Amino acid sequence: MKAMVITNFGGPEVFAEREIDKPQPSKNQVLVKVFATSVNPADCGVRQGFFGQSIELPAILGYDVSGVVEAVGENVSGLQVGDEVYYAIPHEDGGANAEYHIANASIIAKKPKNISHLEAASVPVAGGTAWAALITRANIQVGETVLIHGGAGGVGTFAIQIAKAAGAYVYTTCGGYDIDLVKSIGADTAIDYRKEDFTNIIMQETNGEGVDIAFTTVSGEILAKSLLVTKINGRAVTVTGVAGDLNTAIFKNITIHFVHLDDTRPKLDALRTLIERGQIKPVVGMTFELNQIAQAHKKQEEGGEDVYGKIVIEVA
């Protein structure tokens, strides 16, 4: 089978196309024909060597899968040949940048019926992360207010829609060129971070109270600044590295959650329900072929006005 492999860490140029043996499922495993995968910031971090010894070279990266069950091993129940599935692969494993992937049946969920494989491949890591942040950790409630930083990004586009489905009022920050996009998926107030100060806008609109939840997908001091506009006894969530003074959380009794995605299957089952109801629509910004994975990584790292939602890789 065809796979894109890295034999050392570095820039996008480390990818090389290889022909490798097609794997076969063992006990409790499923062989999936990969139709699509996607690029996440974590993919780029692994490729650059940020996860060190936990990644054994040579390696096949890729952590999102949408595909079709090709074969099942012993003791597998609930899945059969021909089922359309989607799932997230643990970062120490990887392997989606190939025509086939072996996974433990316990992590595999049925793909939403009303979206394509390209759309479904954008969901597992980003959608699961947004769900973990807002539902599992922040325990968002009907009628609450939430601030989502990076609303036009992969996690952000799912976070906006999850928050709206939960009955929240959504503030989000993004570039001015993405305001129409974030409003089209449910943002109530969109703030151009390049031209506007989100702290002033939120404190004015909330009569000085702030939001119930602040969620950041952006690294740096954004979390620290967001605590200034989070209510007393509110919650803050981050999925990135942080900097700055977080002591505001002490004086306002704010609970801060640091989120790393795990236990994805229940989250994907819940997301499938919302997707099939039409309450969540994956946002695919760009697509590349499997042998263009280096270009896709380069685009993910460069960003820019034309990069929004998820970058998806068509495999089959």
Rank of each mutant, 00 (worst) to 15 (best):
E99Y: 02
Q80G: 11
A120N: 03
T37M: 06
F215N: 00
D197C: 05
G220S: 02
V76H: 09
I115G: 00
K111C: 11
E99G: 00
S226A: 09
V182S: 01
I293Y: 01
I60R: 02
L57T: 11
E144Q: 15
G73S: 10
D192M: 11
D188G: 06
Y193R: 10
T264N: 06
F35V: 08
Y169G: 03
N104I: 06
A88V: 04
G278K: 14
V34M: 06
S106E: 15
P124S: 12
V218M: 07
K281V: 09
V237A: 09
G167H: 11
I179A: 00
I107A: 08
T240P: 01
I254W: 04
D188V: 05
I108F: 05
Y87N: 06
G304P: 07
K110Y: 12
L274M: 12
E56K: 15
A294W: 04
A126S: 12
G210D: 02
A159R: 03
A152Q: 08
Y169P: 01
I202C: 03
V211K: 03
A42I: 15
L268V: 09
A316I: 08
Q48R: 15
R277I: 08
I185C: 02
D21T: 10
S116G: 12
V39H: 07
P282K: 12
G45K: 15
A294R: 05
L261M: 06
T273A: 12
Q161D: 03
Y100R: 09
Q295W: 01
I140D: 00
M4A: 06
D212W: 04
R194S: 12
Q300C: 14
A132N: 13
A236N: 07
H101L: 13
L246N: 03
K310M: 05
R137P: 01
A165I: 06
V237R: 03
G62W: 04
A159I: 03
I254T: 08
S77G: 10
G82R: 08
A316E: 13
E17R: 07
E301N: 14
L31Q: 02
G78F: 13
M286Q: 15
Y308K: 11
I179V: 09
I275Q: 07
V123S: 07
T129P: 00
F251G: 02
I213H: 01
A121H: 04
T136H: 14
V34W: 06
Q300R: 13
I275T: 10
G78S: 13
A109I: 07
V30A: 03
F35D: 07
